[in-house]
Design a protein around this nucleic acid. Structure first.
Length: 277
DNA sequence: AAGCGGCTCAACCGCACGTAC
DNA sequence: GGTACGTGCGGTTGAGCCGCT
């Protein structure tokens, strides 16, 4: 069969977005909402493909984006979520309101992965890597390890089965099956998280993860983004659902026609656009 | 000051998925 | 059920920045 390209690439602009393009896109979305990404560039007067517009909006223009680096606590949560979900960046990102999958993916690949390796842990499985791979200088390791994490390296500790870890290497045809494994019921998830906490506490690694942020799963679960405590009357699923929905509602809200004047109070959120060269 | 190498992150690409017809 | 289409996702790339020599 073969799929057609998402757009006719002939005559379309690529590469970095200009301020004018950003403003056109933002103006259009804020005034008209998002109905069909494919139609957006045409209607907004942009020489970009819909995909490119979507990416630009999600990763950069969305007013609810959090700016600035990820905190240590967020990093710890990412590590834990990654151990559960594997490279499902969008799912991981859904637990961090205002963060994008791209941002988290980049952060993982450039920083967290490196840090875990220096700790002697396989970033995919969190299992200890062979000793020989650890021969790097320890001084640098110490620099990479957060102050709260310098307690232990997890060396020689056999991690119990964390088969739910996606290795990121399984064939995509098995994705569905894998999804079924990961998409546990929320009750299962809660149970898993409890077990996971026990697991962490058994690992020396757990101790460094827990220290400053108290990010065993209990604190992880009481974080703002994945809260059991904050929404004690809600199941984890419900609270997570609410968080995801808040964004959907936010986007849907634009369907009810937001004028540029309405948008003006948000101006400060977009000041970065003017500050760019 | 210039050259170099490593790092970061925005953006692209290709494939998978969901859905309408 | 098969096909076409729009969207989402994850992997990868490359330009620009920064620190070091």
């Amino acid at each position: 069969m073969g799929r057609q390209p998402c757009c006719d690439k002939v005559g379309l602009k690529r590469g970095p977005w200009t301020i004018e393009e950003d403003q056109k896109l933002m103006n259009f979305i804020l005034n008209n909402g998002i109905h069909c990404w494919r139609a957006v560039p045409k209607l907004a007067g942009l020489l970009r493909c819909g995909k490119s517009c979507r990416l630009r909006w999600i990763n950069y223009l969305r007013p609810d984006l959090k700016r600035g680096g990820l905190t240590e606590m967020e990093e710890d949560q990412i590590i834990q979520l990654h151990s559960c979900l594997g490279n499902r960046w969008s799912k991981i990102a859904s637990h961090f309101p205002g963060r994008t999958d791209n941002e988290i993916k980049n952060h993982w690949n450039t920083k967290i992965k490196k840090r875990l390796k220096l700790l002697g842990l396989d970033p995919l499985t969190l299992k200890p890597i062979e000793q020989k791979e650890q021969s790097g200088d320890d001084k640098n390791k110490a620099d990479m390890i957060p102050k709260s994490t310098s307690k232990g390296s997890g060396q020689g500790v056999e991690t119990k089965s964390l088969d739910m870890h996606a290795t990121g290497e399984e064939p995509k045809s098995e994705k569905k099956m894998e999804e079924n494994k990961v998409m546990m019921t929320w009750d299962d998830t809660t149970g898993f998280l409890n077990n996971y906490e026990v697991l962490w506490s058994q690992l020396e690694l757990g101790s460094w993860m827990n220290q400053e942020t108290k990010t065993s799963t209990s604190s992880y679960c009481s974080s703002s983004s994945f809260s059991l405590d904050d929404s004690s009357n809600l199941s984890v699923g419900e609270s997570s659902y609410l968080q995801e929905n808040s964004l959907h509602q936010w986007v849907d809200g634009f369907d009810s026609i937001l004028s540029w004047e309405t948008f003006c109070p948000l101006e400060k959120d977009f000041s970065f656009l003017e500050n760019r060269q």
